[in-house]
């Protein structure tokens, strides 16, 4: 097992989003197969994720870390555990608030928005 010893400093910090939102290109152990693109919207902005990933992973790959504003303090929050345990990553997904995006699979065309406070339930929920 050989470690990549070159330090990422050389890559430089371009804009904040670009610097944060990068996928791993070379890895000594893992090969990330190039999965098909999945288009989605974050706060109305078109973004691209990959098939088989969660909404949180897709957002992170696009440099988005601020997922919601806390209920009482309004403080910014992102994900913490990434495995569906801590509920720090609640967002509004296709109008549905309190969606745990760290376990929610990314779907084509899904509309993801930051949640403020507890969020509001969609007015006309389709009866199932």
């Amino acid at each position: 097992m050989r470690a990549r010893t070159s330090r990422p400093k050389a890559e430089g910090r371009r804009t904040k989003d670009k610097a944060l939102g990068r996928r791993i290109k070379h890895h000594p152990i893992l090969a990330f197969e190039a999965r098909g693109p999945v288009g989605f919207y974050f706060e109305g902005r078109a973004m691209e994720g990959r098939q088989g990933e969660t909404i949180a992973a897709a957002l992170a790959a696009n440099g988005v870390r601020l997922f919601r504003h806390a209920e009482k303090s309004g403080r910014p929050r992102g994900f913490f555990c990434a495995v569906g345990k801590c509920a720090s990553c609640l967002m509004v997904v296709d109008g549905q608030p309190n969606t745990m995006v760290c376990t929610e699979p990314l779907r084509e065309g899904v509309k993801v928005e930051r949640q403020r406070g507890r969020g509001k339930l969609p007015k006309d929920r389709p009866a199932k």
Binding site: P8, I24, E53, A60, A70, R77, G78, A82, V83
Partner: peptide, 26 residues
């Protein structure tokens, strides 16, 4: 400690080793 960018070690592992996404630069 609640700022976005404060992550659990497991979260960092999931992000980079399962999804191939860098959690940050430093």
């Amino acid at each position: 400690n609640d700022l976005p960018g404060v992550y659990g070690a497991g979260a960092v592992q999931t992000l980079m080793n399962v999804y191939g996404v860098k959690p940050g630069t430093r």
